[in-house]
Nucleic acid binder design. Structure first.
Lengths: 201, 201, 201, 201
DNA sequence: AATGAATGAGACTTCATTCAT
DNA sequence: AATGAATGAAGTCTCATTCAT
């Protein structure tokens, strides 16, 4: 029984992510989603109370991957703080390249009809407390070890995370960019960030 | 007399920017805009052929300010490259603080049904060739003078600009942040970026 | 139970035909139709994807009668070709008298914005291959039997069918004509057509 | 002065006929017409009180040609009644081929928004009393001379005229038909009609 | 004679949601 | 757990027409 149900609910989540990825947040309509899943529009309401809840679920569902990847990267004992930062950047960008619209839905939206809806999601996920806390810890660690110049780790985290989001956004928008150039860009970004972290005034 | 009616077209642009600012790109409907301006929906079509054209006009109208501010900052002869970068950051952030959703409309949207419309606008403005070229020049100049470590100035520009966009986005979203904290964040951002530019491996 | 609600879809078709009949092809608006059926405009889209599909359905629905009547007439074994022609004329005219605007919608419209939609329908129905083929056969038969003078049966069919359409159109337009006069006109039409078919140069 | 005015008014009529021809009766909007003439929409109202009056004027303007051609044909002293009928058919068809939508607007319409508007025009023009009277006279003449079998000439006229309209309609609709085939069709039509007129029971 | 601005009505269509079955 | 039917609101846009200038 659980299997049966899971099928539909999970299918909705998957196809929903797909719709979101292909058509953006406006393209995710109950009608289309129902058709894509092969089920009536009304059926979706059996599984999710709202479009809001649906959206939240889709996002949480898809976002989990990034979070666990990031966690793995940031908690890897065998890497230096600088390496962790660099790997986190790559993990983040890879996620964005795989699901650009999921990314956009979560991190960049707070306009559109789902604005206020997503807002709460953003608070839950966008800030991503847990991951963020880990990132702060990595920076603190680096500063303690002398790898990074001393500074407020939370502020640094915020600044870098925001920068990373900006980079990701640009890359998500310009999907047609040559992979080569893209890698150079990412590399330069890492260089600047890590340079900035190490730089002493 | 001219003052009384305030030109309607300009009014549409202003109220349109306001709607865009308050409700995002989808919230900008002809219906609402008409009501806000105090005019019938159809009247808007006297002044703008399309929603697309309207959007383009609103954005260009509002975006002009930033471009000219940036130009002034980046072409100021009496400042060092590093100072120019810092001032550009502040100019950008100030613009975002004044018109957060104008910013969001232009820079963060890009796919979906209504978004292909914006796409061309983005190409015109988002890339913002002219300003961007000036930014590249500032970095080149800094590298030539030895203020910045040598690196590809275009790549560096792209990376920094994307980062700046990310910071701006975060600030735009979290408008309720305390000004104090905000300034610290901006300052830390500048420090990291400028540090990164100066850092030699 | 089924009777009570009367199927809505069928109701839409019927009221749609009525609207079409009373107000022509442009008068058939979703708004009006919804109101006439006693249902919201949106409800119509539950049953027909488009105005185009709706139109097609209405026409096919109403047109079926004529086709089957014509078929019965033209395949009646016990009548001479001339009689078949005469009966077909009367059947056609009777249909037009019963549903004058259904007829008009199908046969007289064909260009303009809304009309390209009808175009395909016209190809399906207007040409009415099947019925038309039967008509050709009747003429061939008559020529073979010597009832009609030898001539290209397809060309003759086309000419007569077009003429019949013209007559029908006139009658549809001038609905107020006295039945007596109308019958005389139809009779004279048959006489000319049949005379023309029998006439040898 | 008259010249100046004539220019605009006549231009409206001409471009109006063109619009009517290209886009059908729905395509003839004041907006488009104004643009086509190179004048504001409102300007049209300086010359014509209504869309109705405009339409009437366009039709009358364009229809004049047919009427005078038909008059010339039907009053040609040097031709037999049969020849006159044949020539009238060709004149009519040629007119339709040149201005198919003018034809449609005048003779086939009585649906659409302009329905009731055109109706009155139809009474004036569609029946085309004068021309029609001449046609009756030709038939009478033919019957008197023994070229045609005796019959009610008015009834015959009506039947033939309606048939001709039907033929014209078919030809107007299927504009892509090969000229060769078209001519054969017209010829066969003439043969049937003339045969029917001459046939004695 | 002409224009620019505006209007009110109406066009088709899509949306999220509800409800009886 | 699911469906088919329906709804009300909203979306963009076009139309014929009016009016002050």
């Amino acid at each position: 029984m659980e299997n049966e149900e899971k099928n539909t609910k999970q299918l909705i989540l998957e196809k929903g992510a797909l719709l979101l990825a292909q058509q953006g947040i406006e393209g995710l309509s109950m009608r289309k989603l129902g058709a894509l899943v092969g089920v009536s529009q009304a059926a979706i309401y059996r599984h999710f109370a709202n479009k809001e809840e649906l959206l939240r679920a889709i996002i949480q569902n898809g976002y989990g991957r990034l979070v666990s990847t990031l966690r793995a990267v940031l908690e890897n004992e065998y890497q230096s703080p600088a390496q962790k930062v660099r790997e986190a950047v790559y993990a983040y960008i890879n996620f964005v390249l795989e699901s650009p619209d999921l990314f956009k839905a979560v991190l960049l939206q707070d306009s559109g009809p789902a604005r206020q809806q997503v807002h709460s999601v953003q608070k839950d996920i966008g800030k991503n407390r847990e991951t963020f806390a880990m990132f702060i810890k990595v920076l603190s660690e680096g500063m303690a070890k002398g790898d990074f110049a001393p500074a407020d780790p939370e502020l640094s985290s915020l600044a870098i995370w925001a920068s990373l989001t900006g980079l990701a956004s640009r890359i998500a928008v310009e999907r047609s960019i040559a992979p080569d150039l893209r890698n150079q860009l990412i590399e330069r970004f890492c260089a600047i960030i890590l340079g900035g972290l190490q730089y002493k005034y």
